[in-house]
Each structure stands twice: as C-alpha cells, then as structure tokens.
Design a binder for these strands. Structure first.
Length: 477
RNA sequence: GGGGUGGUGAUCUAGCUUGGUAUGAUGCUAGCUUCGGGGGUUAGUUGACCUGGGUUCAAAUCCCAGCCACCCCA
C-alpha cells in the first residue's frame, strides 16, 4: 500500500515523475546506480508491449534469437564510427575469477558487432537473404550523467532487430516499416502520439547512414525519443566482411538495418499522461482495466455476492479486472489507490446498486459517475475503447498546440532555451550549426519529418545559410 | 566534466547552528468502532542516525574521504 502523490506535476515534474513510478509500484530503485527494479505492475505493462510488438515483427517474417551478453573488444571496435560513439559508456569485464582476461569483454551496449560477426559466417548467397532477426534483451551503457527511472538507465530493457538485405532500397523500406510499427505501438497501446522522421547528422546512431526516430512531445516542452530505426547501409557489412554471392555470380556487400524500442516508452507514457493522483493508463496497456470497489457497509454478503457476479460477467468478456474485496480498507482508500495505479474504470457497488441491479462507473479522469444496468455490462468493452480513443485524440491536440513554426532567430533561441514550446523551423541541417545551437540553447534538433515538404526557399533559422529541411527543436530527455 | 542539495525505524520526517543514544506522522500486529473519495480510537511493534576514518570524556550533530539519490550548468 502506498500513500498519495504529494508533489504536483506542474511544480516539479521530475520529482513528481519519480514519485508516481515508485508509489504506483511500477518500478523501484536498486542497490546499483542506474539499475532499476521492474516490479510486477510495471513489468506486466512491458509484457503487454512485448506481445504487441513481437507479433508485428513476426508479421513481416522477423524471427527471434539470442546472442551473447559479452563482446570481445576486437569485435566491438571493428566499425570505427560505432566504437567512437559507444566507447565512453561501455562497461568491461576484465577478470574471470581471479584471473585477468587476455582480452577485455564488453557488456553489450548494443549488439550490432557481436551479431554481425555471426552473420558474416551465415550469409553466403543471395538465397540467404533477407535475414530478419530480432532479440529481446537488455544492454548496458555506463551513463555518467544523470540517470532517470525508465528514461535513462544504465541497463536498458529493450528489443533490437537486425536485418540484412540485398539492396539499399529493401533496407530503407524495412527501417521505415519498423518505424511505422513503433508509431502504431505508441498510439494503439499507449495512446501516445509521436512525430516520426529522420535524425540530423549529429544526432544519428553511431555507424548509421540514416537514423529514423519516433519522438514524443512532453508536457514540459521537452521531447523524448521513444524508438529508433536505422538504415546502416553497408557501413557494417564491409568491416564485418558480410558478403553474399549474387545471382550474377558477383560477391556483394549486403545492406543492413537495426532498430529498437525500450522500456523508456513506458516512462514517456507516464510523463505524458500521469496527473497529481498518479498514473493514467490506456485500457490497452493497463494490467487492470477495471477496479470493482464494493461498499461493504450494509448487506455486506449480498453486495459481495453481486460484485462477484459482476466480476465474472466482465471476465467472460476478457476484461482484466481486480475485485477489491478486502474488508479492512475503506472504499475511499481503494478509490484513491485505483487512481494512483491508473486503472481506467472504477466500478462501485453498494446497497444502492444491489437494490436496482445496476453498477456505478467512473473513469480515471472523469468527475461524474454514471450508472449501468447489469444487463448492459457488455458495453464496458466499448467504453474502454472510447477511453483509449479519447486519450489519443486529446493528446494529439495537446501535442499540436505545443508546436510553433518560427522564423525569427531571436524567438527561436528564446523558445528552445527556456522550453517555452517546441519549435519547427527551416534549417541548414549541418553539424556545425547544430553544435552552435546546442551551445547557445542546450537544445538540439529532435526530428526531421519524412513527409514531403514544400521546397524550402527559406534560410536557416539560426545561421542564415540556405535551409534544406524543416526540423523540430527542443531539449530532450 | 564543473557546481549545488540531501541521506535518521518498512516509509516520510524533527533534531544538527550551540555535541550528552532520537521527535512526530504513516505503516505493521491485535481489538473496538467505522465504511458512497485516503475515517476514529486503544494497546503493541519497528532505529548499525549512508559507509569508513578523525576530533572529543562523549558524535545523528563538528572535520576528512567515499558511496548513493536528486537538481543546475557544460
């Protein structure tokens, strides 16, 4: 049992966020910095996410596999850009018992290298392609800056897909298709809208030709990357010597992709939707979609019996629910606890409901309670869908309201430096310019939308050179 | 990488300036009373005061180092 939330979201969003995660019993801190404990309530949400994503991946022929946790240094450092990007945050195994190892072993910061070492032996012919493999695992990146529950930990629970194709076109198509899956997951399971697009040169994955990402706008006008999908081109197939003999009997380097989404997406959902009472969950991800709360004042036995009747009627329809029949806890407490845990629907049943064979229902964020006849309980399912849809469309509106197109440099700098809103602006897209923007404001380009834009005849908002893209700018978690 | 704040029963917290083994609440156990948005009450229960070292007759308190958490800036 936990107490309520005593820090307001609008006053101190990070303290509020930590408190919601811990008091709702999603996660807990552990004895090791940056390593969180995922408690059953939080882990169940991850399991539901895994289920959804896994079937999406499998629908296009991706198979699951498992590769080693440890990567020999010689293999990790084969691709120069890649190792440069990850080196500062690699954790190393240097001892085996009391014996120093001849070669250091990296705890995977991501698995491109160890997997592609295997791929180089598996792929011989164009008939071996495409190779479509995913693994569900964790990675370790030794963050030295701040760590944050779910958003930035040292151990990250995620999936990483690694596919190999004959042509550049197939690879790019795969990277984009997976990006769409991620966007769909965020919307259909978490009710979280996102902006998808490319990352800039300086923000892209170490070793990628193109990185795509789904970025989510947060209430404090930050943005957070919920998922990424990379077109690696031949940047890894060459150093890892992955080659196949094509139909025309010519040896070719294949084209690759890698893509991943982590438990961070759940952290983003919490920060987007939670309020001062606790979590707010879409019925799609919620471990419990309804809480039945009996008022055990009068006619206790009959009220309980009726509650169980309601419970089994709802269970028949496949609704996930909890019957709060503990007698030593007051109904008020149970209602608040249900809100803290983000349960989408509360069903109250007392003497009044018993007498007229109805139930009183209240949504997580609604004030009013409405009544439903016992015979109408089959409407609950639709009600849950309505809740999800209403959450998503409201969130989309809120996201749109936080984005402003900007043409004045002064206002651009002021807005992103102080996180007043997300700025969409014409941009030259060069690393130099991005570095200066970061230096002056602390913000970076987050995403460059893929949709075809009108040809940009404008100049870069920051440096004044001709603009090549329209980009979104914000600080990020 | 630089700076700042904090760490006291299971949880939150008072005490620290001015050294003398710790306050209150929540929880937990048992009971009575309650129950329609965190109810009241009685009794009981819970502490290596983050770790290590130093100063002192005496350290939660002062000093040093470390660990952890959080915040701000690069």
């Amino acid at each position: 049992m936990a107490e309520g939330i005593d820090i307001k979201k609008e006053n101190d969003i990070i303290s509020w966020y930590n408190q919601v995660l811990i008091k709702s019993e999603m996660v807990d801190f552990s004895a090791v910095k940056g390593f969180a404990v995922y408690k059953p309530y939080g882990y169940e949400m991850w399991e539901r996410s895994v289920q959804y994503l896994d079937s999406k991946f499998k629908s296009i022929g991706v198979k699951n596999a498992y590769f080693p946790l440890l990567i020999p240094e010689s293999i990790l450092s084969k691709e120069t850009e890649h190792i440069k990007g990850f080196n500062p945050e690699v954790a190393w195994v240097v001892m085996g018992g009391d014996t120093k190892l001849d070669e250091r072993l990296a705890i995977r910061p991501t698995s491109e290298t160890i997997m592609y070492d295997s791929y180089s032996r598996w792929i011989k012919s164009y008939r071996d392609l495409p190779l479509l493999i995913n693994q569900w695992n964790t990675t370790v990146r030794w963050e030295t800056k701040e760590t944050r529950l779910l958003l930035r930990g040292r151990e990250v629970l995620w999936q990483e897909g690694h596919c190999v194709f004959r042509t550049a076109e197939e690879a790019d198509k795969n990277a984009r298709e997976i990006l769409q899956f991620y966007k769909q997951f965020l919307e259909e399971m978490l009710a979280v809208p996102s902006i998808i697009g490319k990352k800039s040169e300086s923000e892209k994955f170490a070793g990628a030709v193109t990185s795509y990402a789904a970025e989510v706008v947060l209430p404090n006008n930050f943005m957070s990357q919920a998922a990424t999908s990379h077109n690696l081109g031949q940047n890894f197939s060459k150093p890892f010597d992955i080659k196949f003999l094509d139909e025309d009997n010519v040896l070719q380097y294949p084209f690759q992709t890698s893509w991943g989404i982590s438990m961070r997406s759940l952290g983003i959902m919490v920060i987007v939707y939670g309020d001062n009472k606790g979590l707010v969950l879409s019925p799609r991800i919620a471990p419990y979609q309804c809480a039945i709360i009996p008022i055990l004042k009068e006619e206790k036995e009959k009220v309980l019996e009726y509650s169980r009747e309601v419970e089994s009627k709802l269970k028949e329809q496949g609704i996930r629910l909890i019957l709060e029949d503990r007698e030593d806890i007051s109904p008020g407490w149970k209602l608040n606890d249900s809100d803290l845990k983000g349960i989408p629907l509360k069903i109250q049943i007392g003497k009044r409901e018993l007498e007229s064979r109805v139930v009183s229902i209240k949504t997580r964020t609604g004030q009013e309670s409405t009544q439903l006849n016992f015979s109408e309980l089959n409407k609950i399912k639709d009600k849950l869908d309505e809740i999800h849809n209403a959450m998503l469309s409201k969130a989309k509106e809120e996201m749109a309201a936080k984005i402003k197109e900007e043409t004045s440099k002064e206002q651009f700098v002021n807005a992103i430096k102080n996180s007043l809103y997300i700025v969409k602006a014409p941009w030259c897209s060069t690393p130099d310019c991005e570095e200066q923007i970061k230096g002056e404001t602390g913000a970076t380009s987050r995403v460059i939308p893929i949709e075809k834009e009108e040809l940009i005849d404008k100049n870069c908002i920051f440096c004044g050179k001709p603009a090549i893209v329209n980009a979104y700018f914000a600080k990020s978690y």
